[in-house]
């Protein structure tokens, strides 16, 4: 994750300012495993619009409340792709 490519967003930034639906699915395991997450807060935005990931967010896994950080690719307020690093349990 290249932190320098992202700018920190204000803590008052609201998730619905950026996406229509705060729930998204990370697909792993060669397209087999679908894991549902919910955005807690979008923390960073990419400095360049051509970045692979457009936003970073704190997220929670819906099934067990595990916490993590997600790299998101958001286009037209839709999350097209996501990669999550789970960091612990809430």
């Amino acid at each position: 994750m290249n932190e320098w490519r992202f700018r920190l967003l204000s803590e008052t930034a609201r998730t619905d300012d950026y996406v229509d639906d705060p729930e998204f699915t990370e697909v792993t395991g060669s397209g087999e495993i679908y894991t549902l997450f919910r955005i807690v807060r979008i923390t960073h935005e990419a400095e360049h619009s051509d970045s692979e990931w457009t936003h970073l967010a704190n997220v929670v896994r819906v099934s067990d409340s595990a916490l993590g950080v997600a790299e998101l690719r958001v286009v037209d307020r839709v999350i097209l792709d996501a990669r999550v690093t789970v960091s612990g349990h809430g």
Partner: peptide, 9 residues
Amino acid sequence: IQEVRNRIA
């Protein structure tokens, strides 16, 4: 694609 994947999950 977000809605499709959320429903599959």
